[in-house]
């Protein structure tokens, strides 16, 4: 039976939430350590959880993006394997050049811990395929401002790579309120908000449940 790999770096801190979420959905999670490579054919999907890998040293996600496990992630994604990066996971995927753009300090300079309204504007090959229209998810980040040079924005839209946008309010100054993006062939997805923190009523919302 194929498994869903949950990547763990030093400083990852949403790994157990993601692990439980995968179990609750009836899939088979397995942790993957940053120093090890893995057999890509044993996995149906990979998730890079949030946190502060390597203390955000150098740049958020920069050191994690260059760790040994990412060689396997690149191989896996090259074969079309679905990869989801949440928060710090999104930063790692950008630093690994698996997703376009970069995530820099919030415009307001503060760490933000809040719930936000989001609009789904793109279609991933694997994640959130049931999600339509407007949803509400929590955010918790200091470096959540999505940046892509002005000249590259139109191409991102044209290729359907904008996945989610903040609705009503732009919490961190992201360019065009972009909260999530996709790779060109839509198998790699990155998102600043945390779907795994919104999968039960007692958490404050359930809109994250159907991301998997």
């Amino acid at each position: 039976m194929k498994k869903i790999g949950v990547l763990r770096f030093s400083g990852t801190n949403c790994d157990r939430d993601v692990f439980s979420w995968i179990q609750l959905k009836g899939f088979h999670p397995e942790y993957l350590w940053h120093l090890d490579q893995f057999a890509i054919n044993d996995y149906e999907a990979l998730i890079l959880p949030g946190g502060f890998s390597f203390g955000d040293y150098l740049r958020s996600g920069a050191l994690a993006a260059r760790s040994p496990v990412m060689k396997s992630v690149k191989e896996f994604s090259k074969q079309g394997g679905p990869v989801l990066g949440i928060c710090n996971g999104f930063q790692i995927l950008c630093e690994a050049e698996l997703l376009p753009g970069a995530l820099v300090k919030n415009e307001g300079r503060r760490f933000i811990d809040d719930w936000v309204d989001l609009q789904c504007v793109g279609v991933s090959s694997r994640f959130a395929s049931q999600v339509k229209g407007s949803i509400r998810l929590p955010i918790a980040h200091g470096d959540g401002r999505y940046y892509l040079p002005e000249k590259d924005l139109q191409a991102l839209w044209d290729s359907g790579q904008v996945w989610f946008q903040y609705r009503n309010e732009n919490p961190n100054g992201s360019v065009q309120g972009i909260a999530g993006v996709l790779s060109k062939n839509k198998n790699i997805a990155g998102l600043m908000p945390h779907p795994e923190r919104a999968i039960a009523d007692w958490m404050g919302g359930t809109d994250g449940w159907s991301f998997l």
Binding site: L58, R59, A62, R66, E95, G101, A102, V104, Y147, L148, P149
Partner: peptide
Amino acid sequence: KKMLCNPLI
């Protein structure tokens, strides 16, 4: 080029 600088930012 490979690590210390992200040319985008």
